[in-house]
């Protein structure tokens, strides 16, 4: 065995433990709610990179995407763009992935050139916004964390709930004021004459 073959093993044995987040692609695909994300990641697995990028770009438009899903979409879009030698788009995608999950790591199968570009983007991002790094997050086992699901807001936190109540109160008050004005005597006629406002409030009812 050549010495170079022992290098990964040596690194594995002697490197300090790492808690950075490595995405489990199968799990992301399995739990993803966004169809474009699912399809895009499936295209990556099928090596259909052009279509995969399209799908993941569509997925990234979705503002409701969870951070892990967003990171997965951008990361794999970047890998596919880099495979197609589109370095500029790959950089952009990698940056988006790191914005979603700052401690994101590339999957083990990533090529060295991908890893180099990805780390370049990580360094550039850290140089631009060092205050945003949060070392506490590194202690979490992100790979096994359950996928965040969409939060269901209680009804009383919905905008339409209080708007509806307000509308009912306002309209009820206006109706009450209008209905109780029947006893008022607005001016009419004059010159020794008055007038009568007649309201008929009945229908005619007959035995069937």
């Amino acid at each position: 065995m050549r010495p170079t073959h022992l290098l990964p093993l040596a690194l594995l044995l002697f490197s300090p433990p790492t808690f950075a987040r490595v995405l489990d692609l199968d799990r992301v695909v399995e739990e993803a709610q966004n169809t474009d994300l699912k399809n895009g990641l499936a295209r990556y697995a099928d090596l259909d990179f052009a279509e995969g990028i399209k799908g993941l770009e569509q997925a990234l438009v979705d503002r409701g995407l969870a951070p892990v899903e967003r990171a997965a979409a951008a990361l794999y879009a970047g890998l596919m763009a880099h495979s197609l030698d589109d370095v500029a788009r790959a950089k952009d995608f990698f940056t988006q992935a790191l914005e979603a999950v700052p401690d994101l790591e590339l999957p083990p199968e990533a090529a060295p050139k991908d890893r180099a570009l990805f780390e370049e983007m990580r360094s550039a991002r850290r140089a631009q916004a060092p205050e945003k790094s949060d070392p506490v997050k590194l202690e979490l086992d992100w790979a096994n964390e359950p996928m965040p699901s969409a939060k269901v807001e209680p009804v009383h936190q919905k905008w339409w709930f209080w708007t509806g109540i307000g509308a009912v109160v306002v309209s009820g008050t206006v109706a009450a004021v209008l209905l109780t004005r029947g006893g008022e005597t607005p001016a009419c006629g004059g010159g020794g004459r008055g007038c009568i406002d007649v309201t008929i409030s009945a229908l005619r009812w007959r035995t069937p």
Binding site: T185, G194, A202
Partner: peptide
Amino acid sequence: TLSRGCAEVVVRDGEAAAVTLTLVDA
């Protein structure tokens, strides 16, 4: 004639007297 109703009201000079009639079956 289907229904009838009657109400009494006081009319004053220059004022509108409001009256509501509820008609019942004739």
